[in-house]
Design a protein around this nucleic acid. Sequence first.
DNA 1: CCCATTTACATACCATCGGTATGCGGAGAG
DNA 2: CTCTCCGCATACCGATGGTATGTAAATGGG
Lengths: 194, 194
Amino acid sequence: MTRAQQRERTRAVLVEVSRQLFATRGYAAVGLAEIVRTAGVTKGALYHHFEGGKADLFRAVLAQVQADVGRAVAAAADAEADPWDQLVAGCRAFLTASTADPGVRRIMLVDGPAVLGWSEWRAMDEATSARHLAEALTGLVETGVIAPQPVEPLVRLLSGAMNEAALWLAETAAPSALDAVLAPLVRMLGALRA
Amino acid sequence: MTRAQQRERTRAVLVEVSRQLFATRGYAAVGLAEIVRTAGVTKGALYHHFEGGKADLFRAVLAQVQADVGRAVAAAADAEADPWDQLVAGCRAFLTASTADPGVRRIMLVDGPAVLGWSEWRAMDEATSARHLAEALTGLVETGVIAPQPVEPLVRLLSGAMNEAALWLAETAAPSALDAVLAPLVRMLGALRA
DNA sequence: CCCATTTACATACCATCGGTATGCGGAGAG
DNA sequence: CTCTCCGCATACCGATGGTATGTAAATGGG
């Protein structure tokens, strides 16, 4: 095995193992010793790949999780033709993606802001999930579907609403809960229309 | 000084000092050693008052912060006569209260869920800030101002939107940002009216 | 083909942290 | 005045994140 391959492989295993552990037990409750043991390497390898240590490793895990969610949102949106339907479909996709895997919530919504700080978390969020939301809203403003207004406050309001809703959905066993939260969300979105 | 007084005093100092430190540097970055040194006591005193250790101490700090914010929200709402105006005033008060003191955000919105877990954080939240929101919405539903619908999803959506907005406002220096986020929020709230 | 060099990791170690067990002085009850 | 118990201090421990150093193998120029 070539050197670049080995490097990438070790790094990938480290991220994958950490993602699993962080997802089930949370960032603070998982020690580096367990991570490297599960990954079959040592702390030397970990710090070779992630100079920043544990937080840096978490950063990589979060990036992967956000990329996954972002892909799901984009895919759902692309399946629709009408821009408004794309927005709604994206919102629904985000909620389902965040609810399906419990680890996503924990990593993305609970530990993320605490470990990296809110500003850095937000920067990463705006590179994936929130970016789709911002682009969709911008498009709707430009085409006159929703009234002209600053998009950034809207993104923060809606993003926050959906993040919290995702956390709530995870605890609500009822399968109808998704619709129970989507209905008022869509209704409130409707208020933005011109 | 009597014994009960001394006890309450030590506990209050511990909470106050911790609140200050957690607010400025975050839960994880503050050690117990610094807390007890600043408070002028020792770890023995800390564990005498807070059996659960650091997390238990944080719980007390969070409860105090939430109580402060809850009071501010309730006061603003009580100043209005019309139930709808009370809701809007409460939202505005929450955003201003969360923005005024940077520590409030850090403790209540960032570290809170990560340290105590989201479910416990939510339970505490629903005892203060979110409770006012829930009561206001329930009242509006009962009086027919907004359409009959489950209140709980609404509370989560709005609570999440405002929490995230508060974090965003803190980073946005512009003084007009509060209105920039309140305007679309109120507009979306309007969509709930019957 | 060979040697110099870098790379990818292992090992050993350290400082600090949260947490606990025990000791003690002084307030309060009788 | 004495005994008791409460509030807190002291001393200590295991575990954790982090670092400094060692090392074998891959790489690339001559």
